[in-house]
């Protein structure tokens, strides 16, 4: 089992090197001619107006929060799903309760308009 994850670690490190390799080739091959206009931010051809780093819509944050809650819920389902066949009806009832409580949460979010974009 440790060996499995050793492979994952090696894949991550060697993968970074391999993905970086073309960038090295670019560094060796590609031209480097610099003038101010080239390095200006692209804004459909007009001179950039202000910075892009400004405050953004709160909507994204709400969806992020709801997402984290449901992601955790899905995580709880994994171990249950694996042993479900062995345990049968009891496991099913237990999970119906678990899911019902969470569906109440979904219904609440729905009702309160947390899932509306506009």
């Amino acid at each position: 089992m440790l060996l499995d994850w050793l492979y994952v670690a090696v894949f991550a490190i060697v993968g970074l090197v391999l993905a970086g390799l073309p960038l090295v080739i670019v560094w060796l091959l590609a031209p480097r001619i610099d003038y101010p206009q080239k390095r200006s931010t692209y804004e459909s051809g007009v001179v950039p107006f202000g910075q892009a780093w400004a405050q953004f819509n709160i909507r994204y944050y709400i969806f992020g929060l709801v997402f984290v809650v449901f992601d955790v819920e899905v995580i709880y389902l994994y171990p249950w799903a694996v042993v479900f066949k062995d345990l049968g009806a009891f496991a099913f009832v237990e999970m119906v309760i678990f899911l019902t409580i969470l569906m109440v949460g979904l219904a609440y979010a729905w009702r309160k308009g947390a899932l509306e974009w506009v």
Partner: peptide, 14 residues
């Protein structure tokens, strides 16, 4: 009880 905790955190977040 965990599912209740999740429910409470969802409602709180909203």
């Amino acid at each position: 009880v965990t599912s209740l905790v999740l429910l409470v955190s969802l409602i709180g977040a909203i």
